[in-house]
Amino acid sequence: MNNKKNLDIEYLRALAIAMTIATHLPILLPFYSETFLPLLSVYMPWTGVDLFFCISGYVVSKSYLEHLDRYHDKGLFAVAAQAFWLRRFYRLLPTAWLWILVPLALSLAFNQSGSFGSWFENLRSLTAVMTFTANLANQYGKLLGPNSVYWSLALEEQFYLLFPLFLLLVRSWRWRVGLLLGLIALQFGLSRDPFAGPVSAMLFSFRLDAMVWGVILYLVSRTELYRQFEPTFLADKGWLRVAFVGLLVYLLGAIPGQMIAVPVAVGLVAIVSLLLVGIASYDKGYLPVPAALSKGLGWLGSRSYAIYVIHICAFHASTELWHRYAQARGVELGTSFTLELVLTALVMMVVAAELNYRLVEQPLRRKGAELARQRLARFVGAEEDSRDVAVRSTAARELA
């Protein structure tokens, strides 16, 4: 396995988090609602989440599928699955739970504007998040309240729980691909418009297409078919890369903005996500990223998970801060505070994400990796082969 981090995947993560932040700007700037509405009917960027889903399906499969299969052949699948879950636990949950506790504390101590919601709404969110049911809870009276972004994290957690079990029960490559394609086909024609009623909204919160496509992408990448589909036509023509990838990025937001009432819209979004992740999976610079932006986008991609769980809290904190300022001066918090609100939220987001990455994510990721290694070592001793070492190294880089 190649241990080098795939920068094109990082760039897609940066795109996904930028789209997610753009989706939630009305929370920070509610006085622009009438301006946002017509824009969102043309380009709806909530599909950045679907891009995240597809990346997760592909990267987790790349990092762990062969590893889990190999331990299955050794009769140690249960141990390998436990090691996988340990890694995922330490990678995701400390950050997620920290940034559900912070708004809870702020709802009690820093909440004159009410932007953080009530302490009970935050406590209820905490309960849903810690029971991995946030996507389900969000469909019943909006029980996630001010922390609604956690619905997608719950869906990923459910995927990580079931992923090893799927590999255990389905051993054949053909059966794996066939069943996954069947799952996509089962959902493809169903309406998943979040505004069309309770059934569609529920299906919207349990949409698996993009993650499943990510798994299929990795399964296909182990075959000759993957090499035959490599988009080499993007290699030498910069204008073609810009045009082709630009079209896909346009479709990623235009389909839900303009076609969400069409039942297959969400399924089409998943396919667009697959095409973008597929292009990035070759790691040959097929994405048109200017050199001047490479470092910044790489940073944004590597911190995207922290930013995802932090940005709403930063929006609320900025609103609270400037609400107090405006109230002290007897003025209304409105359009005249746009720049202040945005810059303050941006600074809070960047600083908090960097601190979280260095002080929480990185140390605990290493802790989870060490615990997983120790768990495996109890059963296989010190004779893990170099391929297993490569898997661990790749997982640490790809899932960063």
Results as ranks from 00 to 15, higher is better:
391 V>Q: 13
259 M>K: 14
72 H>K: 15
283 D>T: 03
16 A>Y: 06
117 G>F: 01
60 V>S: 07
306 A>T: 05
258 Q>W: 02
213 W>D: 01
167 L>E: 06
66 E>M: 09
283 D>A: 13
213 W>V: 02
20 T>V: 15
26 P>R: 14
12 L>K: 12
379 F>A: 06
220 V>G: 02
206 F>N: 06
159 F>H: 10
376 L>P: 09
143 L>C: 01
107 S>P: 08
398 E>W: 07
7 L>W: 07
88 R>V: 01
137 A>D: 12
327 Q>T: 04
342 V>E: 01
323 H>S: 09
255 I>R: 12
256 P>N: 08
32 Y>I: 05
304 S>T: 05
335 T>W: 07
264 V>P: 00
356 N>P: 00
303 R>C: 03
313 C>N: 12
36 F>C: 05
392 R>K: 14
354 E>M: 06
252 L>N: 10
138 N>S: 10
56 S>N: 09
143 L>D: 03
202 M>N: 04
118 S>A: 01
123 L>T: 05
392 R>P: 00
234 L>T: 07
63 S>N: 08
321 L>F: 15
183 L>G: 08
30 P>D: 08
119 W>F: 07
41 S>Q: 15
384 E>D: 05
310 I>L: 09
321 L>A: 13
371 L>D: 03
6 N>S: 02
244 F>R: 11
253 G>I: 07
235 A>T: 12
238 G>V: 05
96 A>I: 13
120 F>P: 00
342 V>R: 03
58 Y>R: 10
165 L>K: 12
208 L>R: 12
295 K>G: 00
317 A>H: 07
370 E>C: 04
100 I>A: 14
75 G>L: 10
152 S>V: 03
197 G>C: 06
313 C>Q: 10
70 R>T: 01
135 N>K: 14
267 G>I: 04
369 A>H: 13
116 F>V: 04
259 M>G: 00
316 H>W: 09
390 A>W: 03
327 Q>M: 03
171 R>M: 01
395 A>S: 15
266 V>Y: 13
54 C>M: 13
273 S>I: 03
267 G>V: 03
65 L>M: 14
38 P>F: 02
364 L>G: 04
41 S>N: 14
149 V>I: 15
204 F>N: 10
156 E>Q: 13
8 D>A: 02
98 L>W: 03
60 V>L: 15
173 W>Q: 12
236 D>Y: 12
262 V>L: 11
213 W>E: 01
98 L>I: 14
86 L>K: 15
161 L>I: 14
356 N>Q: 11
264 V>T: 11
101 L>H: 05
203 L>Y: 09
396 A>R: 15
173 W>A: 02
176 R>E: 00
143 L>P: 01
284 K>W: 03
85 W>Q: 14
165 L>G: 03
222 R>K: 15
278 G>K: 12
268 L>P: 02
336 S>D: 09
246 G>S: 09
156 E>K: 12
15 L>T: 13
69 D>C: 07
193 D>L: 05
391 V>P: 00
